[in-house]
Nucleic acid binder design. Structure first.
Length: 478
RNA sequence: GCCGCGUUCGUCUAGUGGCCUAGGACACUUGGUUUUCAUCCAAGGAAUCAGGGGUUCGACUCCCCUACGCGGUACCA
């Protein structure tokens, strides 16, 4: 649809091979869950269409740059099995995949824009910019650059030669409707007067996000720009750039922003946000991805648990709901528990061994016997340590009354008589005691473990061994 | 303030004009199984579909307005 005085809404009629991407910025500790979500969707769209999934590092903010963040981001993405086809560490046909290594490219395109009159040099000082802004606020006017340099500077080349610091700004023409189609939200129109003459090239020679993404997405032949909702308002700037360059418009899809329980944008102040935190807490990558998949999208059969492959097959961008979902740790835990329960004993054993150093102190046999007991009781892998304290002599100190001490005493005698230390025999003795002393099971837990609940007791004692079990009882009667 | 995007149980969601006296999942409550806890099974409470106007024989579904929430408004991404 073409409107009077508007930009054209893109026509996506080409059969370009699908290429999606995520452009993480190494400005935090690691990849943010919100970005992990975006990564999942980009990955799914690429895989579904036999396309390529690319990672490009957007390290153009030198102030916020964090050393080591890129490595962390890449390693997290790998741990979540969102394998990418091209990226800074593996290269690809459009290398380099780090914007800091592509500076000369942006330079050329900025010049092209200037030649076309769609961008201009700006030599304004920070002070003037601040003053301008303050005045605009005071006068209750829209804030934004006033095109001062576009209108007044005639000798830009000279100033540049004299090493005057400059930036390159987008020249936004007023009174133009800028339209683009978003797969998730439909057609979006924004008036050009709402758009500031954005800085495209900073005075340190680095591009801003806006120039960087557009140039790189085009050069890297990205077909689908799938990113979070917070980018909607800057998309018109990108549309303007695509038009000026005469490049084919990509497909836009703005995903909902994940939220804190108070509905604000998911943030580290209110929620754990780094992907590696979830791994450290013992969440399984596939459970995490399954949970994320269910935000803004639902399985056609209303299934809750499904594989990544199934998701890729069924997922359609147009089915994503535009509403920002609250990230619910409680449901994630349930999801994780489901995945733990689906593991075979052997798989779970390996997961625990890889996760917890403590588990390595246990004998193979002990661990093998423990796994089935643990499986239905673990929400996360971290629960392993919570549930197995008794095997590592981590027993809380509690007081015992006379009755409990009496039970412990009798137990020592009865249990000592067991020849073949097996849970059945142990259970028979406990059961007998239970009836005789009219006590309930929790008391026996307390006696042996210091806590009134836990893994099945006879089995636990069997694994613990006769000596250790009885030794524990002797401590109780002291 | 201005612009944009949203609004179905506490939360994630189903729903694309009649199947909806609104379905599922998490959480919660109760009961069953059980050697504690958990698992598992069953039952239950929980949304007058943000509010108000239209359009229509008929609206959760389409249109408009209001309210509220979120996002953007940087030489951050």
């Amino acid at each position: 649809m073409v409107r009077q005085g508007s930009t054209q809404v893109y026509k996506h009629d080409s059969n370009r091979p699908v290429r999606t991407r995520i452009p993480p910025s190494p400005t935090g500790e690691d990849i943010h869950v919100g970005n992990l979500y975006t990564a999942l969707i980009n990955f799914a769209v690429a895989r579904k269409n036999n396309g390529k999934f690319i990672i490009r590092i957007e390290d153009t903010d030198r102030q916020r740059y964090q050393k080591g963040a890129e490595e962390k981001i890449l390693s997290s993405i790998k741990k979540f099995n969102l394998n990418y086809d091209e990226g800074p560490d593996i290269g690809g046909p459009h290398a380099p995949y780090r914007q800091s290594e592509r500076l000369s490219i942006y330079d050329g395109y900025a010049k092209e824009l200037i030649d076309k009159g769609d961008a201009y040099y700006c030599f304004c000082t920070k002070e003037r910019l601040i003053e301008l802004r303050e005045n605009q606020i005071k006068e209750n006017k829209k804030t934004g650059y006033d095109k001062h340099c576009l209108l007044t500077v005639k000798n830009a080349d000279k100033l540049i030669k004299k090493n005057t610091p400059f930036v390159v700004r987008l020249n936004v023409r007023p009174d133009k409707k800028i339209c683009f189609k978003d797969i998730i939200r439909g057609e979006i129109t924004i008036d050009s007067s709402e758009i500031d003459d954005q800085v495209l090239l900073k005075s340190d020679g680095y591009p801003t996000y806006h120039l960087g993404v557009v140039v790189d997405d085009h050069l890297m032949e990205i077909t689908h720009i799938i990113r979070a909702e917070e980018w909607i308002s800057s998309t018109p700037k990108h549309v303007l750039l695509y038009e000026s360059f005469g490049w084919e418009m990509p497909i836009f899809a703005h995903l909902p922003i994940l939220r804190n329980p108070d509905k604000s944008k998911l943030s580290k102040r209110k929620n754990p946000v780094w992907a590696s935190w979830y791994l450290k807490e013992g969440f399984l990558p596939e459970a995490m991805l399954n949970y994320l998949a269910l935000l803004g999208w639902s399985h056609p059969e209303e299934k809750e648990i499904f594989s990544l492959t199934e998701f890729i097959n069924l997922f359609k961008l147009e089915d994503v709901k535009p509403v920002g979902p609250i990230f619910d740790l409680v449901k994630l835990k349930w999801m994780n528990q489901q995945y733990i329960q689906m593991k075979s004993d052997k798989e779970l054993m390996k997961l625990i061994l890889d996760f917890s150093d403590k588990s390595k102190k246990l004998s193979d046999e002990a661990l093998r016997k423990l796994i089935p007991l643990l499986k239905s009781r673990m929400e996360t892998l971290l629960d392993f340590e919570r549930l197995t304290g008794v095997f590592f002599d981590e027993i809380p100190v509690v007081d015992f009354d006379d009755k409990e001490k009496e039970i412990a005493k009798t137990l020592i005698e009865d249990l000592s008589k067991i020849e073949d230390w097996k849970s059945d025999a142990i259970f028979n003795i406990i059961k007998g005691m239970m009836e005789k002393s009219k006590t309930r099971m929790p008391i026996f837990y307390k006696i042996f473990t210091g806590v009134e609940r836990g893994l099945p007791l006879p089995e636990t004692l069997e694994i613990l061994g006769k000596n250790k079990s009885i030794k524990r009882l002797t401590e109780v009667i002291k």
